[in-house]
């Protein structure tokens, strides 16, 4: 890798295009990941709360192979 850190960040003059591309990509993908994660943990917590509050009912066993 030639040049110093500042040259790396300048990206040959294209910094204004390259870094926002990577930054927005990272934000969008990380954001979707965390939103999905949070939705899952919230629902799991809600389910746990409901099952702890009410007596656990026996449900009819589902058919193992359903097509």
């Amino acid at each position: 890798m030639e040049g110093g850190i500042s040259e790396f960040f300048a990206m040959g003059g294209y910094a204004a295009f390259v870094w926002p591309s990577y930054a927005v990509s990272g934000l969008v993908l990380a954001g979707l990941f965390f939103v999905s994660w949070r939705e899952l943990t919230r629902r799991q917590a809600l389910l746990d709360r409901l099952q702890a509050a009410a007596p656990h009912r026996r449900r009819k066993p589902k058919d193992p192979e359903r097509t």
């Binding site: 990206m11 040959g12 003059g13 294209y14 390259v18 591309s21």
Partner: peptide, 8 residues
């Protein structure tokens, strides 16, 4: 031709 912008 495109320099560093190709990294996009």
């Amino acid at each position: 031709q495109q320099g560093e912008s190709v990294r996009i």
